[in-house]
Design a protein around this nucleic acid. Structure first.
Lengths: 275, 275
DNA sequence: CAAAATACGTAACATACGATACAGCGCTCC
DNA sequence: GGAGCGCTGTATCGTATGTTACGTATTTTG
């Protein structure tokens, strides 16, 4: 038995032609609201023609469009009247292999932030928003993308932000550029990489302030780090999860942006005028 | 300022004639669902005539019935998309500056997964774990790190996984390598990049199956995509959040790994012995 | 109590919405 | 390479829907 139209769609989306699949995806993306609008609006949002929408609902087993809409409304009524069903994901008895993953991730984030004080974050933000020094970012095998992600944002709102990528020998040589006023943001989770540890140690000796993103068992780099962010990584998977660290990174990016705006940084105003 | 139609009604219900008051009560009783149905149905449920309904919505300040319905739908959309506003956020003791960011992110993830069916994910996993074809990953300005992150993991558990980076001209030429059996995983959120759209279009013409990670407004690439994952990106920040997409990516990585283990892939056993 | 004003429903109307027929196109399979 | 099939969009049609006009009922006011 199929309980919701959403399930019905995901059951049959594989067997649908391209146009109808676009209709299905548009419906799922903002479920179920476009389904309540007119065929014309639905077709416009999905980028197909009206008949395709009608064929789509016909394929789902409905006699006509109004019948389809009524079903959607009934579904919505049930949902709105029992808020419990919202929090508890469609129970999907037996399956839902990803749900435990999601739950664990959400828990990880809550735990991660619970152990982070506002003071600590504020200090890091202040340091990152301090435009007198340079900012370098680097990560390990799996976490380097996080460093890139953060660098991509920070580099826009302020100058002198550099992601250290490529071969080890390349970024090792960049140590020459680093001094007391600079910040090095390092991402390092298990298994901790020796090359990164050595790099951090040298940087530390040069007086560079290190901000470390690591897991709850703390990379050895924590010994040299000025600020340590310990994210929870445990999930029911063969891999560790970096999602919590990712969210902290995003929170920092947002906070630094706000800080620079508050500082009235000329660059921010220029950026806005460019857009 | 009146935020919802429900408030508007309770403000004015005192000044309404009997018939319209019955209409108002009927609407409030199962808010806002009858308002989305036709005037005829509305009038029948309320026990009044159609014109009375129209006079009722006119009194609320709407020019016509469709305008009234649109407003109701917008209201509903806002409600459904930010469950936070429904639960009336607990002030979160201490009221930290990053807490709203965290809350929004958690909501985004729950919402994103609520719109994702197990079936849909299972299809994608099956395709990604299919070792007959190659897997290419690419992302936009801010999302390319996500592509890298996913590629870093997938490349370990199976051969023929390629991240497309560097200059546009470089990865454009890689189109030659792509064929019907291959998968292209694209990350593209606002503002959608023309270069990526063109790339996706060409790849699609070559028969490549496209898995798209995008935001809830759907990149134009959705037109060519076989599978679309629409993540929520709204957070109280100057930037959009990719955290929800990141978590989906991690979930997929985990699921693909499990799938390959189940398939008894020789490579996995070899890997384990190497560790 | 009478007269006026307001409210309500019936019925006719016009719009726009959903439905259908048909032609063009691409794709697959001989 | 050609024939057949299936998918998609354009254009047209019928109809359900929202809208309005008008007559009757009901309440209000002097």
């Amino acid at each position: 038995m199929v309980s919701s139209i959403a399930e019905l769609i995901s059951d049959r989306i594989g067997t649908m032609p391209a146009g109808e699949r676009r209709a299905a995806q548009a419906l799922i993306a903002s479920y179920p609201l476009i389904g309540l609008k007119t065929v014309a609006e639905f077709s416009a949002t999905a980028g197909v023609s009206s008949p395709t929408i009608l064929r789509f609902v016909a394929r789902l087993g409905f006699q006509n469009y109004p019948e389809f809409q009524s079903t959607l409304q009934d579904e919505l009524a049930a949902q709105l009247q029992s808020p419990a069903s919202r929090t508890l994901n469609p129970p999907s008895p037996g399956s839902s292999a990803v749900s435990p993953m999601l739950e664990a991730t959400l828990d990880n984030m809550r735990e991660t932030f619970r152990h982070l004080s506002d003071k600590q974050l504020a200090d890091i933000v202040a340091k990152l928003a301090d435009r007198r020094g340079k900012t370098f970012l680097i990560g390990g095998r799996f976490t380097d993308p996080l460093a890139r992600y953060m660098a991509a944002h920070l580099a826009i709102i302020q100058p002198n932000v550099f992601h250290l990528g490529g071969q080890e020998s390349v970024w090792r040589d960049r140590l020459i550029d680093m001094g007391k006023r600079d910040v090095l943001v390092i991402f390092d989770i298990r298994r901790y990489q020796d090359s990164l540890v050595r790099f951090a140690e040298t940087a530390n000796q040069r007086g560079v302030q290190i901000v470390l993103f690591t897991d709850q068992w703390l990379s050895p780099i924590a010994r040299f780090a000025r600020h340590v962010i310990a994210g929870r990584t445990a999930v029911p998977s063969a891999w560790d999860s970096s999602a919590a660290l990712f969210v902290v990174a995003e929170a920092l990016i947002g906070a630094v942006t706000r800080q620079l705006e508050a500082d009235g940084a000329k660059r921010i105003r220029e950026l806005e005028s460019l857009r």
